[in-house]
């Protein structure tokens, strides 16, 4: 990957981080309602995988921590923010909310709020690709806790049986809501659980973009070349709580600090600085520029957009 591309990736990761932090603020201000699940700490996972795939071409589906994945597929951050504000201009026309971002024109097939629910849907998308004979693949991003649902096992079995072009990305942030993985799950290494279905699998550091990207290239190639499903486990960490009401009493501040020392944005930034491709001043300027963009374009758009028309309450129930 060229330094220019890596700088673009860094920029997207900073945008993802600042977007989510701004959501936090908007939630405190009660501009955003419902549940809000934020992504800071996990940015290298989405970036590393999608840089190895074809955003907007390959189909992506995920759970409720979905804003950043949509933006990476091509969604306009303004429309994602407008959705969180419940506005008619939102990607899902204000009917979905944070957990249900959809942007089908960019092949972002949605955020779903039942843990493990997207597994079979991802396999179904892969089945449709198989029937139609396209070269897309189906990519399913979910957390480690989803692997304790029956849909995980049932879907892996069918994906292997029907040799479906689906890549399962497990972002192992080590917590299922407020329960640590070692308190909920007998086998901690998630990629080992997949061997029972004879599915190719690997595990790597999810904080280092370059590491994720290298592993993801192999995984994507495996799936795209018709070898059936692949399971990629990325070891990562969620800085914020599960959702906004979570005060993180189930883990220590020391543990959080330890992970923040391996921040995915700083790892990539420092590597670019060490290689002479970027300066610290340029990075700070980038942060400022993105903050300005979020405030003056993204938030402004969401604030100024109209709400849905109540007369259209029942629109979109049936075709």
């Amino acid at each position: 990957m060229k330094p220019e591309d890596k700088k673009r990736v860094l920029r997207e990761m900073v945008l993802a981080r600042r977007f989510e932090e701004r959501c936090y603020q908007a939630y405190i201000e009660r501009k955003i309602g419902g549940f809000l699940h934020l992504y800071p700490g996990q940015e290298a996972c989405c970036q590393g995988v999608m840089e190895a795939a074809r955003p907007g071409h390959d189909y992506v589906i995920t759970g409720y921590r979905d804003h950043v994945h949509a933006i990476k597929c091509g969604s306009d951050p303004k429309e994602v923010m407008a959705e969180l504000y419940g506005k008619e201009t939102g990607v899902s026309k204000g009917r979905g909310g944070s957990m249900h971002i959809f942007d089908v024109k960019h092949h972002f097939m949605g955020g779903y709020a039942l843990v493990g629910g997207p597994f079979p849907l991802a396999a179904g998308i892969a089945k449709a690709i198989q029937l139609k004979g396209g070269d897309e693949i189906s990519i399913c991003f979910l957390g480690d806790a989803a692997n304790n649902q029956g849909t995980f096992h049932e879907t892996l079995n069918m994906a292997a049986l029907y040799k479906l072009p689906v890549l399962f990305v497990c972002e192992n942030n080590q917590y299922g809501i407020g329960t640590a993985i070692d308190r909920s799950t007998a086998v901690l290494d998630q990629f080992k659980r997949v061997c029972g279905y004879d599915i190719a699998a690997s595990q790597c550091d999810g904080q280092d973009f370059d590491v994720v990207h290298e592993h993801a290239k192999k995984a994507v190639a495996h799936v795209r070349n018709g070898n059936g499903p692949y399971f990629l486990e990325l070891m990562t960490y969620r800085y914020r709580g599960h959702s906004m009401s979570d005060s993180r009493g189930y883990r220590t501040r020391e543990e959080e600090e330890l992970w923040k020392q391996r921040d995915p944005i700083f790892i990539l930034r420092d590597r670019l600085i060490d290689a002479g491709a970027m300066t610290m001043d340029a990075f700070h300027a980038l942060e400022k520029e993105i903050d300005h963009y979020i405030e003056n374009e993204v938030i402004k758009f969401a604030e100024e957009s109209p709400e849905p028309n109540v007369a259209e309450l029942e629109k979109y129930v049936l075709a």
Binding site: G117, P120, M158
Partner: peptide, 15 residues
């Protein structure tokens, strides 16, 4: 549950 979900996912793409 999962074969039903698989069919639903396929239907998103016009199957």
């Amino acid at each position: 549950n999962s074969y039903t979900g698989l069919g639903i996912g396929a239907s998103f793409l016009g199957v």
